[in-house]
């Protein structure tokens, strides 16, 4: 139970949640709810791993996995933006389809041996910073550093740029945005696909860096859904999403480590002696998500901030709407 190891592991595996959550934030800011994150992550994970196994090149795998997630998101975009279908149902369909396709495509991959992984790196200088150095900058996968960069860039894009203003406009009031000449349909397409690219990247991050290999649905084991919950917790802010992702992953790792020692804080560790009790430990992350949502919902009500106003509402030009 070394806090440095737990936090470093949190940053490492939290990067998966970070990518998925940031992608979903971009899509939802544009007004399109995409509940297919789990499906897109699985497709990204299997495409990345399959490509890496076939070619021996993890970088190619990263590209293919990312694109695969974007491709699946394009389907969601067509159905929800052009056909104006119910976004919740389309997202669920995307998860079914992605899970099924990934299982079909990954049929032979669970037997694949070790592959070349994406490199890890220790940043000279920064890794020497006390406390933070060993957690953030020592021996982390290259993708963890990509995650560090993605967060401020998306924040800046959403909050400080003109295209970001358009993004917020089409999610809050597409009619007004359209009147001002913002290409609502085209931008919504773009952000849904970008969201899918991020989800694909998140999946690829699992299979090529964080916990390599293909284990069917268990590869993601519900992280896509956790990312969707994180977006609500983060109130559609990439920075809060990143903190939430790291914290959540660290807590998950800590719960795993609790089962190890015979003594816990000087007393007999019940989880070491009775293994069936660990099922309750495993419930905690899911209960934590619910608890956090309950807390945040109250906060959102007080501050009167929350979801983009047009989230989940298809935009139809010329009809009364938001």
């Amino acid at each position: 139970m070394d806090p440095t190891i737990i936090l470093a592991a949190g940053v490492s595996s939290g990067t998966v949640l970070l990518f998925a959550a940031v992608g979903e934030i971009l899509a939802e800011r544009a007004g399109v709810l995409n509940l297919g994150v789990e499906g897109m992550m699985l497709i990204g994970a299997v495409a990345a791993f399959g490509t890496a196994v076939a070619t021996g090149n993890p970088w190619l795998g990263l590209v293919v996995g990312t694109l695969a997630g974007g491709l699946l998101a394009l389907l969601h975009a067509v159905i929800t933006i052009s056909f104006q279908a119910e976004q919740v149902v389309s997202g669920l369909a995307l998860t079914f389809l992605g899970t099924g396709l990934a299982r079909v495509a990954g049929e032979d991959l669970s037997k694949a041996g070790a592959i070349a992984l994406l490199p890890t790196a220790t940043i000279p200088g920064l890794s020497a910073i006390p406390v933070l150095g060993p957690i953030l900058f020592t021996g982390q996968s290259i993708l963890v550093y990509v995650g560090f960069a993605v967060v401020p860039v998306t924040w800046w894009w959403i909050a400080r740029t003109r295209p970001g203003l358009h993004l917020r406009a089409i999610g809050e009031s597409p009619t007004a945005a359209d009147t001002l000449g913002v290409a609502v349909y085209r931008l919504r397409y773009a952000y849904v696909v970008v969201g899918g690219l991020f989800a694909g990247l998140a999946g690829a991050t699992i299979t090529l860096a964080i916990s390599p290999g293909w284990f069917g649905d268990l590869t993601t084991s519900g992280q896509g859904w956790i990312a969707v919950a994180l977006v609500i917790f983060a109130q559609w802010s990439p920075i809060r999403a990143a903190l939430g992702a790291y914290a959540f992953a660290a807590i998950r790792r800590m719960l795993l480590d609790i089962q190890g020692p015979e003594q816990l804080f000087g007393v007999r560790n019940p989880f070491y002696y009775d293994h069936t009790l660990t099922f309750f430990l495993e419930m905690l992350p899911y209960l934590l998500i619910i608890a956090v949502l309950v807390a945040v919902s109250g906060e959102a009500m007080r501050k009167r901030i929350g979801a983009p106003a047009a989230l989940g509402v298809p935009y139809v030009r010329g009809e009364r709407g938001q």
Partner: peptide, 23 residues
């Protein structure tokens, strides 16, 4: 049926074409 993902895949495709048909 092998691979085992085929039923899930068919379910997803059915759901998709259903919601598309609602257009």
């Amino acid at each position: 049926i092998q691979p085992s993902g085929i039923p899930a895949m068919i379910q997803g495709i059915i759901l998709f074409s259903l919601i598309a048909s609602e257009a």
